[in-house]
Design a protein around this nucleic acid. Structure first.
Length: 111
DNA sequence: AGATTGACTAACC
DNA sequence: AGGTTAGCCAATC
């Protein structure tokens, strides 16, 4: 791994899109991808997992397509994901009983 | 240049 | 309801 690599064009687009997500809202890997014309949600996740600016860029506001929590800092569970959840809750994001996020909190980039 | 790797997803079984 | 598969695509071997 190369932590001090300059951001690629693709990563820059992803990070720029992150800034559009309002506080207290989330979006999904797929929706963010759609916004920057990338059909691979996986590639979005790849960009976020090596986010060099965390937590300056709000990568915690990106969750899975089914509005469950998704991953954080390269992990799909455990401590990092707990922190992601608490971050979102502290911003006012509402979690339902089944662990998913209130759909009205899903930002859709002015569709 | 080719293969592998994912913080994914929709569509199947 | 859970697993497998196929499609996706940038970064990284």
């Amino acid at each position: 791994m190369d932590p001090e690599r300059p951001p690629t064009e693709f990563e820059r687009k992803v990070f720029d899109a992150l800034q559009l997500i309002p506080r207290g809202m989330v979006t999904t890997y797929g929706l963010l991808g759609h916004h920057i014309s990338c059909r691979s949600a996986q590639a979005i996740g790849q960009a976020l997992r090596r986010n060099p600016f965390a937590p300056d860029t709000p990568c915690h506001r990106v969750v899975k397509g089914d509005l469950t929590i998704g991953g954080f800092f390269g992990q799909n569970g455990g401590e990092p994901v707990d922190r992601k959840r608490r971050l979102l809750e502290s911003e006012g994001v509402l979690f339902l009983e089944d662990g998913s996020i209130d759909p009205t909190r899903c930002y859709r980039f002015d569709e």
